[in-house]
Design a protein around this nucleic acid. Structure first.
Lengths: 349, 349
DNA sequence: ATGAAAGCGCTAACAC
DNA sequence: GTGTTAGCGCTTTCAT
């Protein structure tokens, strides 16, 4: 028996989506009871249930959630608002989210902001107009109208990735400021003193900015300033890391450490150094950020900080799932993960 | 002036979502006209329009798309069904899709199948129940009920990634069989004869399977058989490529070429070979698949086939956008991209 | 265990 | 230009 939803196969010309009424008529059972069967609600006799299911399957009926949602005032959608899919980080967060929502009736709906606050506001408005059961949104910085919408949405809001600031409701992430600080301290402790920094030129990537701030602050405590820095635009990849590392070291040959804002450019830097015959981590130390698993297996294991991406996605989804099950639960959950510093082989110990 | 949607700020205790009626009352304009203003439809005097917009903004009204969709029978959602977010390929496809949909009123909704046909069927059913404007779905292989649903959905269906087979409606992708074949031919032509293959153990990754088939077929034409092969499970990363390459070469030291089913493990293999002092591509040639940009910058540029991921996402989204604008357009579009073989430096020329 | 009536919040169609 | 009416396809509630 093959399903043939969601259109009547009896009238191939008139492609009208099937309704409950069609199933009701086909099965000789009232619409209401059909609805009950299809949602496993209330008591229905086995005989009626069987009749209904048979008819629904034969016709290929697919329920209309739009109508269902309107009538029941319940929507199983979770809005997920992230800056980009190209940054490896976010697909991983998504994987974490879906792995949890998979065991619930909830469905993620993704919106991409391209790191633009105005676009974020727009996407948020768009998504809230679907009256989702919750919102997972990257970052703590939003436009004022966006914040107002979030505050007034009346649903669980989880701000993810970053915990340096005050969330509107719940928050799951790591302190990027602290991640930068810890790396800075580790670098100083390892005896490096002439330090360069390389990151994306994204004034609106607040996480990267906070990492940099924590980093410079840690260095300052040791009486050190960043000696050279480079902010690039465009995507990150090995080639970019190579190129910019070569340039920076040409400009500042006395650097003994470079801190990169992500693992990919750090890996490019590492490959370049190896070919240039530079002793890593002896003469030059390197560190990245993210803890990308797919980069395990470089000639030397990169020093980095694990950004706990999967975990963040999971925890955020769990908060939404929990509170969507029981709307009376108090909000304001705070999950501040401790991002492990992985010293690898590119930071001398 | 700050928006405070979507709940009435006048009654902070009773958190009822605002409706058109609220805006209507607050502005002294009929619901219908409010609706017109908010959708920029029909003729409304500037004065009325201003009154309405002011009231809507002041109250923080966010329209209810559920009700709107039910009434208008129009839904601006596009269902995107893909196997995974962990495989780098799919986020890139998503980027292509969103880049096009961004300029339209359409919104992607993503469902993840984990390469499981039954999960795919389930996700599809779930998504169709939202009556989306179109479906973009990875692959040409689906369960029978899933195919029936797609056939009967009455909306544009675009099957992406793969063109080796018959689509239900439209199709955008590359021929993986041909990609494998072309690579096989290039390898033979370069004079390699003792060839190994390494891929993921995914009986349900039909694209990988087809590549392998095309590959072995090309070799067969040259009178060659794959001499060693390894199918691994779990994610792909540099480390896996290293490890398995070491094992394979230990087992079959006389191989002069290894074809990998993706760039990441190929890159791991390359790094291992370099450290082992193996002359690449002289003594051993290597090739991957995908053409990942972020891997440009390896010590040697990997031979690979560009899978045209962004382009596929874009083309698929364009088909949906086009046909959603004009439902009378004929379906069955076929976009078969020609995946460029990039010989790189790991395939001697 | 089943059915009938009302209505979720919006828009299409038509009147004025 | 603006308002009125009648649903969209379900689920809630209440009756039986």
């Amino acid at each position: 028996m093959t399903a043939t939803p969601p259109f009547s196969s009896d009238s191939p010309d008139q492609r009208r989506p099937l309704t409950l009424r069609d199933v009701s008529e086909a099965s000789g059972v009232s619409e209401m009871t059909v609805s009950r069967v299809l949602r496993n609600r209330g008591d229905v006799s086995d005989r009626t249930r069987a009749k209904v299911l048979e008819a629904a399957k034969r016709l290929g009926y697919v329920p209309n959630k739009i109508a269902g949602a309107l009538a029941s005032q319940r929507v199983n959608l979770v809005a997920v608002i992230i800056p980009s899919m190209s940054n490896l980080v976010f697909p991983e967060v998504m994987t974490g989210i879906t792995s949890v929502l998979d065991d619930t009736p909830l469905q993620p709906v993704v919106g991409i902001t391209n790191y633009k606050p105005d676009k974020e506001e727009e996407v948020l408005y768009e998504m809230l107009s679907w009256r989702p059961s919750g919102v997972i949104i990257a970052g703590l910085e939003h436009t004022e109208p966006a914040k107002a919408m979030l505050r007034n949405a009346g649903i669980p809001i989880v701000e993810i990735m970053d915990t340096d600031g005050e969330p509107i409701d719940a928050m799951v992430g790591i302190s990027h400021r602290r991640a930068g600080k810890v790396m800075g301290e580790a670098i100083l402790e390892a005896g490096y003193r002439r330090i360069g920094f390389m990151g994306t030129k994204m004034p609106l990537d607040h996480r990267a900015r906070k990492r940099f701030e924590g980093f410079t602050q840690a260095l300052a405590k040791g009486g050190i300033e960043v000696e050279d820095q480079e902010f690039y635009s465009g995507g990150s990849g090995l080639a970019k890391g190579r190129e910019l590392t070569a340039e920076m070291l040409k400009r500042s040959p006395d650097l003994d450490f470079i801190y990169y804002s992500n693992d990919l450019i750090a890996a490019g830097g590492l490959l370049w150094c190896q070919e240039a015959g530079i002793d890593v981590p002896g003469k030059l130390g390197l560190a990245g950020f993210n803890g990308l698993n797919l980069l395990k297996g470089l000639p030397k294991q990169l020093a980095t900080t694990d950004a706990c991406r999967l975990e963040i996605g999971r925890a955020a989804a769990e908060i939404i799932a929990k509170r969507s099950n029981d709307p009376n639960l108090p909000g304001g959950d705070r999950v501040m993960l401790d991002p492990p510093l992985q010293p690898g082989d590119t930071l001398r110990s």
